[in-house]
Design a protein around this nucleic acid. Structure first.
Lengths: 148, 148
DNA sequence: TACTATTTTATAATCGTTATAATTAGTTTA
DNA sequence: TAAACTAATTATAACGATTATAAAATAGTA
């Protein structure tokens, strides 16, 4: 099924007249395979073996290309660097403030808030972004252990 | 009423044992008076006349102090630098993707989603962040004018 | 296979933010 | 009120993420 995502993604690029280079292929493959939320640098390091000569700029450039093509989303939390998320279906993120882990979850029906905000502010609303913050089960357990 | 906010803010600092310096006073005053969502640099530039010798580091340091004290929130959108928002009551932000304007709006009752996510993910949820994106009325009008 | 525009690479530059160390200034206590 | 202590400010340099640049390489097409 990740194979399918990859094929679709490559197709999207082709449709848009964007060339498929080995680097682009590898970056997409990586993002789809791990479905994590990597930083540009993490991607860069992960592909170091395969592409010893790849430039960081290539990673950044292509992440932007993918973003413009709607294949990935850019997430920026408070910390230094942006994270990137391969777009599959609509979902939100919850992040552990202790260990930084990001978990996906779904919650349908927030279109209502877009409508509401549109009424109040006069904006034409295009999209929204929702993120939750807390402590994951693992870190919770670890804390309890320490304090007891 | 902004006077009251300032008094309260100064009081919070005093309670927390944080010194009230002229620079801190001025930064708070600025944030409360304009109730905009300035970047650190905007604050720095705005207070240049009053404090010709103030360092950028002072602005950053104090924004962090205020943030730790719960007086302000840090917002980071896709663009380069963080914006800061004086905390009054809970509200969300809607941002115009054309001109960058940020407008506040209220929408109560998103605690439900926190609860839901907690169930699904096993996280202890502390907070959430919601932002909307779109086009403000002014930019909408401008667009319509051009295309007609 | 050859062509051409796009992409990659390597490098340097930029920009926001933070660390450092010396100086200055609030606050506390005598 | 003045000395003393500690925290805050300043000036500067460093840092890290990201982007700009120009030359070299390459994907896609005729």
């Amino acid at each position: 099924m990740s194979e399918l995502h990859l094929t679709e993604a490559l197709d999207t690029l082709k449709q848009a007249g964007i060339r498929i280079t080995p680097q682009r292929h590898a970056i997409l493959e990586y993002m789809i395979q791990f479905m994590s939320h990597p930083t540009a640098d993490e991607i860069y390091k992960a592909l170091e073996d395969k592409f010893p000569n790849m430039s960081v700029a290539t990673v950044y450039n292509n992440l932007r290309v993918f973003k413009d093509a709607g294949l990935i989303k850019e997430l920026n939390y408070g910390d230094a660097s942006s994270r990137f998320d391969f777009v599959t279906h609509d979902h939100y993120h919850i992040m552990c403030e202790d260990c930084g882990k990001i978990v996906d979850f779904q919650y349908p029906g927030l279109d209502e808030i877009e409508h509401c905000a549109s009424q109040v502010t006069g904006f034409q609303v295009n999209s929204h972004r929702l993120e939750l913050y807390g402590t994951c089960a693992t870190c919770l357990a670890a804390k309890q252990k320490v304090s007891s």
